[in-house]
Design a protein around this nucleic acid. Structure first.
Lengths: 208, 208
DNA sequence: TTAGGCCAATGACATTTGTCATGGCCCGAC
DNA sequence: GTCGGGCCATGACAAATGTCATTGGCCTAA
């Protein structure tokens, strides 16, 4: 072999909207001898563009980002580029992990992970393994599966950004009464006392 | 002088609830020759305890922390220890800056600050200066002053954590109708269509 | 084919909200 | 002093909200 082990470094893309954190991760991970940061973005859209342009081995995506969140970006990237995705998140809502895994994400870690361990995870994933933070996995497994129907989820989603039932109905092209029914049944299933509470709860669980 | 300039390093306390970020800041700032990280905490209460124990020159406090947030911790620390406080925050709500300055905080920066610049800020503050992020300052100055009365703010505060007016009324020891009036007038002043919207808006502005 | 689930809609209903008019209290201006 | 004006508090009223029962179309699995 003419090529030492060092020569084939892990090419890494980092996406996080907070400059301080992104910079810190770049600096700390760049310090590792076998990791090379080849791109960094502050939102999901440019992350996808840069991934297409630089074809990194691993993409480290923050879940909470403007324009396109980590999951949307992951979907776009994985469809276009042969790479692996690790999602980093602040609040690990159980349902999100389920959706992340469904879209072929390879790693899922909270921001409470020490940088040292994050480097380990990156190496593991680069080697073809998967890594899911044990706490998040446990939470996702103990968490009950979503009891809501598609339209109920839709209604809750829309209700998060609107005030009146009339607006929700208009946005969904439905009769107001129908919307109230969906919201009502969702509230019953989640035993919430108002649609806001229901929407909150569904969001906390990562269902919307 | 037998003591070189290097010998008197800036003693720094870091408090942030996210391990990844805290670790990154410790590592990056500790790399600076004139800065020494002497303590780190993951919540406001232990931050205050450590500040009392280690008496750092500068305390770098995240605004969003469990147990006690950055402002509460700052108040406790400044009352007990002769030190300076820099607040780091994710979402810079205008009103919070006002309150921070009222409690003698010396610096206020968003998490979008590059680490390099953060080091500058630390040095400036250590030298007795103040530093306020220009964007946040501008937002705080252009932001209208709170038009709400004390009771209205109380009602909004409580309404964030309760569902029904009846509960709010009980918590405030008022008749339900009175509470609805406060909420109503607050909604009018903030032209919101529901109390949740009003409470959200007031929170966004940093009034509660 | 039949039963069951989801979707969509409607009408009646009790409750909860938000709005409004009103009155007492205190304080500063004239 | 007394006259507004702001804040606090209340109850009455109309509108929006959530609940419930019911209907029908559609699709899927047994």
């Amino acid at each position: 072999m003419t090529e030492p082990a060092q020569a084939r470094r892990i090419r890494l893309l980092i996406a996080d909207d907070e400059h301080l954190i992104r910079g810190a991760m770049e600096a700390l991970l760049g310090l590792e001898p076998d990791i090379e940061v080849v791109a960094s973005a502050d939102n999901g859209v440019t992350a996808a563009e840069l991934a297409a342009a630089t074809r990194p081995d691993i993409c480290l995506l923050d879940l909470e980002m403007p324009q396109a969140d980590g999951l949307e970006a992951a979907a776009k990237i994985l469809a276009a580029v042969n790479t692996r995705v690790i999602i980093v998140t602040r609040h690990a809502r159980p349902g999100v992990l389920r959706r992340a895994l469904a879209s072929k994400v390879s790693g899922f870690v909270p921001k409470s992970t020490p940088a040292q361990e994050l480097a380990h995870v990156i190496r593991d994933v680069a080697a073809g393994k998967r890594y899911i933070d044990p706490d998040i996995a446990a939470a996702a497994l103990t968490a009950e599966r979503c009891p809501l129907t598609d339209r109920e989820l839709d209604a809750l989603r829309v209700s998060r950004s609107t005030t009146s039932v009339a607006q929700i109905a208009q946005a969904m092209h439905l009769a107001p009464g129908t919307v109230r029914n969906y919201l009502s049944s969702a509230m019953m299933k989640l035993n919430a006392a108002s649609r806001h509470e229901a929407a909150d709860r569904a969001w906390q669980q990562g269902w919307i």
